[in-house]
Design a protein around this nucleic acid. Sequence first.
DNA 1: CATCCACCGGAAGAGAAGGTAA
DNA 2: TTACCTTCTCTTCCGGTGGATG
Length: 408
Amino acid sequence: MNDDTLDSIFDKAASGTSLVVKDRRALTIDYVPDRLPFRDEESKTIAHTLSIVLKGSRPSNLLLFGKPGTGKTAVVKNVLHRLSVKGEELGLELTVPFVNAKSANTAYKVLHEIAENMGINKGEKKLQVHFTGLSMGEATDRILEFIQRRKKLYVILVIDEIDSLVEKNGDDILYNFTRANERFSTESFISLIGISNSLTFKDKLDPRVRSSLSEEELVFNPYTVEQLQRILAERTMIAFNEGVVSSAAINLCAAMAGREHGDARKAIDLLRVAAEIAEIERANKVEEKHIRLAQEKIEKDTNYEVLRNSTTHTKILMLAVLKSRNGNTGEVYEIYSDICRRIEQEPLTQRRITQIMSELDQLGLITSDVISQGRYGRSQKLRITVPHSTVKEALKEDSILTGLLSID
DNA sequence: CATCCACCGGAAGAGAAGGTAA
DNA sequence: TTACCTTCTCTTCCGGTGGATG
């Protein structure tokens, strides 16, 4: 490696030219194409429902369901973008705050982000929603007060991944927002669009919230493999130079993403990572093998990240599962406490450990099946589902644990 | 067929960390 | 300063429970 090669890498990056990729943005999650293939019906329905806002009446609340990567978010963003442009043309005061409940992480942050999105925090001091310290009620009140005071403000609030909000915090926030219109004494109003990954999420709602939130519903079906192929082909035309991605690669990509449930996001991720790998290899085409490598890399990276960022006790627990012979809860807990003692950490209670284990299960790092051994009690059978090397690699970075890894 | 093991998993809540309001 | 806010991690307590075994 000499200076020239480095220079050429930087030059290429700076000028943005690449043998393979033409427009990288088209492969990111945030990219919303102008037209979403196979989602015309859904777009129309949503547009229709919302269009009455242009006449100054309140649209029905809307609830959208569908598996990840079925285009829910993209469709909504697309429609809302057009709508707000139209609203502006007509001189309406229309605002369309968009929050993702999952990436906001907590219920309070959802409120904070809404306020931020609507520009409340730039306005009157008394109505600002700081990023912590207020009670939930106070924060909600401030947002609603703001809307009311603006006399004729139309708000269409989108909450993406709304199910994770309800899961963590119940439906208090939703209750307040759905009821808000009754409180307003001015012409302002608020409509809600909820986007959910899980079809069963409605069951967790209070009946009153449920009926008002789902005044209208729409289900997004997964894409078929053929549809994924078309979507990828279209995206490829924007993102890549011509003839760079073989059709075999596209087909494989679509097949892999379609295996579970036609997930377009995953398909596009796969394509992006494959392109990166191809670039590093200095290949001038994206082939099937790059897609396969990309698949491996994505899986490994996410597991690795999760593990690396988890707490010491979670890591010790992973180690204990790794070392255990048959993976029974009792045995794993024994090993776990043993390790703790060795590195002079107070072990957590068994109750907490079961909780952590079910979290790990949800993340897909381990599987746990509850089995009954009759007279010998009930237990969980734990198994690690990621390559052991990945686990060890991730744990190596924790200085407390380095000594333990070499033992066996 | 009742028993009883070895754990599961819900509920409540303590307490620390991060903050606002007045 | 005091009072009070949420969220996160853990603990304590405890009522279940599937099915091999006596």
